[in-house]
């Protein structure tokens, strides 16, 4: 397994994200229809399609440049709350990795933590509010723990992806305290939070891109999608 992840991985992550969001578009719309305004799947699909288009037009040379491209595009194109939230997440991750061309496990864990902190700064949500933070915070904790234990980047991301999925599932019984779903109060219980669900998808896409890069795809990680 590779000790570091590069721009090819970052690009593959974004392209994988676009693919999984497109694949789960209807599911996300249905989740959001239950407790929100039914636009989350469509908004994210539009946003990540635009990210792919931007990646085709330019050739970001560092992971940080990939993240910043995603940040600007998602902020512009998503429209709903997910735009500034995921946009800020990618922006902070991009700032954290800076000009680095190779990301090792500790830096990767730091970038994920910065992304989560950006979402918290923007949305003011805490764990238990039934938001994407319920997926992100366990993911960051798991990634940090794995990195400290000496795991490689692919394993760090795998740990994050698994924790994010569990975190998303943990939102099912919660009563929403932030965002549009909070208007529903008690009626929001019994539905998974769409933002937590999409966050888990994005972190799964990151882990899959890293696994592909680690399986000898190397530089070709970018061509995976």
């Amino acid at each position: 397994m590779a000790d570091t992840l590069n721009a090819a991985w970052a690009e593959a992550w974004l392209r994988n994200s676009a693919a999984v969001v497109a694949e789960h578009r209807k599911e996300l719309i249905d989740l959001d229809r239950a407790i929100g305004d039914a636009d989350h799947g469509e908004n994210l699909d539009r946003g990540f399609s635009a990210v792919v288009q931007k990646l085709d037009e330019s050739n970001p040379e560092t992971p940080g440049a990939c993240f910043k491209l995603a940040a600007m595009t998602l902020m512009s194109k998503v429209g709903g709350a997910a735009g500034p939230l995921f946009g800020t997440a990618y922006l902070r991750a991009g700032t954290t990795v800076g000009e680095s061309t190779e990301l090792d496990s500790p830096l990767l864990a730091q970038a994920l933590a910065a992304a989560r902190d950006g979402i918290v700064a923007r949305g003011k949500a805490e764990v238990g509010d039934k938001t994407m933070i319920d997926a992100w915070t366990p993911a960051v904790d798991a990634a940090t723990e794995a990195a400290e234990a000496g795991a490689g980047p692919a394993d760090v991301l795998e740990a994050a992806a698994v924790a994010a999925q569990q975190g998303a599932e943990s939102t099912d019984p919660l009563v929403a305290r932030k965002g549009r779903a909070s208007y529903l109060a008690e009626r929001s219980a019994g539905h998974r939070d769409p933002g937590a669900a999409s966050s888990a998808l994005l972190l799964r896409a990151a882990a899959d891109a890293a696994a592909a890069a680690g399986n000898g795809a190397g530089e070709a990680g970018a061509s995976g999608a």
Partner: peptide, 10 residues
């Protein structure tokens, strides 16, 4: 609404 605030902050 809320996300307008977040877009502005961004």
């Amino acid at each position: 609404l809320g996300s307008a605030v977040m877009t502005a902050e961004s």
